[in-house]
Simulated assay, not measured.
Amino acid sequence: MNQSKKEPIKNGKIWIVFGILLALITPWYFPKSFGEILIYGIPLWAVIIIVASILLSAFLSYVIRYHWTIEEENEEEEAKGAN
């Protein structure tokens, strides 16, 4: 696993997914009819925002876990290289 990690800020695919998820949690562009459609008593726009918020949280966790270069990882790799 000598695959070098790219910082998330330099990865365009991550930014595209962030943009889509952030657009989904912004309610002011939803049509007015979304307020009339109810799912278990909750307006459709609210359901979309709740689901998108959960997806955003999961995606942030994924990015931090697998794409973020942490100093501890760098120190461990340097220690292994010194041995």
Rank of each mutant, 00 (worst) to 15 (best):
A23Q: 03
W45Y: 15
N11Q: 14
E73L: 07
E77L: 09
S61A: 12
W15A: 08
Q3M: 12
V51Q: 04
S33Y: 14
L60K: 05
Y66G: 04
P31W: 02
K6Y: 05
P31V: 03
Y29V: 00
N2I: 05
I25M: 14
E71C: 03
L60M: 12
N11S: 09
I25K: 11
E77F: 02
L38G: 06
Y66H: 11
I25H: 02
I25G: 03
E72S: 15
I14A: 02
N11G: 01
N11A: 08
I9Q: 14
V47R: 05
E71K: 15
G81H: 05
S33C: 07
V63H: 08
L22G: 01
I64R: 12
I37N: 07
P8G: 11
W15F: 03
E36S: 15
N83P: 00
L60R: 05
W28F: 15
F34Q: 01
E36Y: 12
S33L: 11
L55G: 02
W68E: 03
K6R: 14
S57K: 00
W45E: 14
L56W: 01
I49P: 04
L21C: 03
W28T: 07
Q3E: 13
E75M: 06
W28A: 03
I49M: 15
K32F: 10
K80R: 10
P43E: 12
W28E: 06
A46L: 01
Y40D: 15
P31T: 03
W28D: 08
T69W: 06
I25R: 15
K10Y: 11
E75P: 00
G35S: 15
P43G: 13
V17C: 06
A46I: 03
E7K: 15
K10G: 00
E77D: 07
S33V: 14
G19C: 07
A79S: 09
K32L: 12
P27M: 10
E75G: 00
V51T: 12
E71W: 14
Y40E: 14
T69Q: 13
W28P: 03
Y29E: 01
I14N: 01
A79Y: 07
I9F: 10
E36V: 09
L38V: 00
T69D: 09
F18H: 12
F34T: 04
I50S: 00
I42W: 08
V47L: 07
I64G: 09
W45T: 04
L22E: 02
A52M: 05
L60N: 06
P8M: 09
E73M: 11
K6N: 06
S33Q: 13
V17Q: 04
I42A: 11
L55F: 12
S61T: 06
I39G: 06
V47P: 00
K32I: 10
G12A: 13
S4D: 08
V51E: 05
I64D: 06
E78G: 00
K32G: 13
N2K: 14
I49L: 09
S61K: 03
L22D: 02
T26W: 06
R65E: 10
V17A: 07
T69K: 14
W15K: 08
E36W: 13
I37Q: 09
T26P: 00
I14W: 01
A58L: 14
E7A: 15
P31F: 02
F34L: 02
